Amino acid sequence: MPVSDAETSLDAAIVARLKRTPDGLVAAIVQEHGTGEVLMLAWMDAEALHRTLTTGRATYWSRSRQEYWVKGATSGHHQSVRRVALDCDGDALLVTVEQTGAACHTGAHNCFSDELPVSALEAR
């Protein structure tokens, strides 16, 4: 279970700005520094965000394993954090990283390789 707001060391002013899902998570969009390529989407709670900001290593909450994970801890495909921004509504984070190796668990550089057809484009 994610750490409660009372247990996290994240600044209370930042915690107050986060608009989270009922299970306490906020979407973290991960972007590659330099290219701007969107690599993946992951989930953070206040504690994962605190760990990310204080260590410079991307730390997420795994919904399937119900535990924190540092990207690359087992795969070697690390994410060194260069910037973290909170969107204007407080419901998403943009994490800009230096990616080492693949970002996707499938081995692909990013997690967005399955393009879907947009029928409106055909009508133009």
Rank of each mutant, 00 (worst) to 15 (best):
A85Y: 07
K71N: 06
V97M: 15
G90H: 01
A102Y: 01
Q99I: 00
R57H: 10
Q66V: 02
A6M: 06
A13P: 03
G36D: 12
I29W: 08
A42P: 12
V38K: 09
H78V: 00
A120E: 13
A123Q: 10
M40Y: 00
V38R: 04
V81M: 13
L39E: 02
T59H: 03
V26H: 14
I14Q: 06
T59V: 14
G34M: 03
E47Q: 12
R63M: 05
V26W: 04
M44E: 13
D45W: 07
H33D: 11
A6G: 11
R17V: 08
S4I: 00
V70I: 06
A108L: 15
E122G: 10
E98H: 06
D45V: 03
T35A: 13
Q31N: 14
R51Q: 14
L10Q: 06
A12D: 09
D114I: 11
E122L: 11
V15K: 08
H109F: 11
N110A: 04
A13T: 08
S75E: 05
Y60N: 03
Q66P: 11
E37F: 03
D5E: 06
D114C: 09
A73P: 03
A12W: 09
T21H: 05
L121S: 08
S75C: 02
H77C: 07
S9E: 15
G36R: 01
A48W: 01
A102T: 07
E122Q: 15
A103E: 00
D45E: 15
